[in-house]
Design a protein around this nucleic acid. Sequence first.
DNA 1: CCGACTTTGTGCATGCGTTCACAAGCGGTA
DNA 2: TACCGCTTGTGAACGCATGCACAAAGTCGG
Lengths: 250, 250
Amino acid sequence: MASQRGEGETTATPLEPADRERARAIPEAAVARLAVYLRVLSGMADQGVTAVSSEELSQAAGVNAAKLRKDLSYIGSYGTRGVGYDVEVLVSHIERILGLTRNHSVAVVGIGNLGHALANYGGFPGRGFPVTALFDVDADLIGVPVGGIPVSHIDDITAVCLEREVSIGVIATPPPAAQSVCDRLVSAGVQCILNFAPVVLQVPDNVEVRKVDLAVEMQILSFHVARRADEAASVSVGNGLGVDGMVIRP
Amino acid sequence: MASQRGEGETTATPLEPADRERARAIPEAAVARLAVYLRVLSGMADQGVTAVSSEELSQAAGVNAAKLRKDLSYIGSYGTRGVGYDVEVLVSHIERILGLTRNHSVAVVGIGNLGHALANYGGFPGRGFPVTALFDVDADLIGVPVGGIPVSHIDDITAVCLEREVSIGVIATPPPAAQSVCDRLVSAGVQCILNFAPVVLQVPDNVEVRKVDLAVEMQILSFHVARRADEAASVSVGNGLGVDGMVIRP
DNA sequence: CCGACTTTGTGCATGCGTTCACAAGCGGTA
DNA sequence: TACCGCTTGTGAACGCATGCACAAAGTCGG
Ligand SMILES: NC(=O)c1ccc[n+]([C@@H]2O[C@H](COP(=O)([O-])OP(=O)(O)OC[C@H]3O[C@@H](n4cnc5c(N)ncnc54)[C@H](O)[C@@H]3O)[C@@H](O)[C@H]2O)c1
Ligand SMILES: NC(=O)c1ccc[n+]([C@@H]2O[C@H](COP(=O)([O-])OP(=O)(O)OC[C@H]3O[C@@H](n4cnc5c(N)ncnc54)[C@H](O)[C@@H]3O)[C@@H](O)[C@H]2O)c1
């Protein structure tokens, strides 16, 4: 905050702020929502919609309109007051901020149930995430093409990842193998990991990990059911009995 | 505070009024972490570990020790100062708070790539989430057993869900079908939905939805790569030029 | 029985994210 | 051109979550 003079005065200088500054300041939660807005906007563009207001877009994205505008303000001021946003302009700016102007090559490790589903999934390439490498230890799988790509042996992971410039590694191995696979990905230079194995991965600071943990998702849902059932019980009965008289038991 | 020696103990009991208050106040973020602690603790229990300190547990769960203690304090005071926590006691109390003292029957809708993986996955039943119903529209799939359960037709969803007391519905259909499937689940009385389709679902207030959106996860990773690459560029090049030629100030 | 040591549980400050409310700005209209 | 109605962009207030730091409360050795 050193450059601009004037204190809290209105930003009458629209071109001044640098994108890099902004990108650094975007809250993680907002980044996740930007990705959702992008998808909604792409859908609108496909249907020929060219302009959209914050109200419309926020409803389609399932968020509060004020939050949406705040989120968009993190990436710049690309709307027109009194009118709304140009869909294509917004799409291109969100893509730029999210780093989607270039492709990010993806490697899937562990071609079992889940790995097959991921490798066969057609939704990634179109969004800039081509799956370019598959790995497994199972000898029967090596060389077999899945979703058009032959499975490589896990021992070749470094060479293959470097060669195909893999930037995102997806871990779909059984839990015991996950940390070891992660370590190998990291030493192959992969800095982004999406982990499906229910394990807490240890990684160096320069590596970004996101986990998808279905059991945790279900348990969160379970918590809400329990809380709701419990509230109902406390209103109607007031003791430890469930709604339909069923005692909650281990 | 309210914890007395000798009362309750390790047996999971129905929520008492004090716990009910607590459950209502637990932050969502803490609930998600409790589920992780539970998994780590279960693993420890399986390996014969009987006691654990907040420091150990927090490292295994990949969080700050203070945060872990705060999270545990939301469910009560079950530790022993100077010693730590009894693994089994903690497990049973977390399970109770998360509503895992009873099974939650799961239905999967859309038995394609992903639906097959989910239906075949062995990790859910053991954690209290038995998959008891599968649905699809594809005539070729109806009646075919996947993971031991025959696929039902989507039109039978209400009857089957009621009969098997489904409490969690998993949507793994193509995006265009998701909202319609969701509506059907809701009218079948399902109050918890886990959605894999990249669509924003509209549901009544009494229904809880969680989404798993892989494209969004990857885009968040992409954002971090871009941010990092950008920082690196500004350090190594140091010419103060941004991505689009804008001047970046130090 | 005491005192030293260990670890929990939590009050408090801090920072982040969400929400509100409204001035600023733009297009349309007369 | 001047006015009007609409929508954006954002300062400011609020609320929630995180992390710190320490008193309270327990164990253990002597
Ligand atoms: N299938 C699901 O729906 C689902 C749901 C939630 C979580 N998960 C998790 O996702 C992971 C994969 O699940 P799955 O059902 O596909 O399991 P799976 O057993 O079907 O497949 C695992 C694959 O990983 C391979 N593998 C094992 N060790 C390896 C190693 N060291 N290097 C490379 N490959 C290795 C195996 O050969 C196998 O092909 C598991 O951790 C599971 O807990 C799966
Ligand atoms: N496969 C993946 O790895 C992956 C990754 C991310 C997201 N997704 C999302 O998950 C969903 C499923 O993906 P997939 O690869 O399994 O797709 P898929 O096409 O393989 O399977 C979809 C299944 O849903 C069934 N279906 C279609 N309409 C239905 C309806 N109205 N009622 C019931 N069933 C219906 C189809 O018959 C088919 O069996 C999609 O929304 C996809 O975007 C999948």
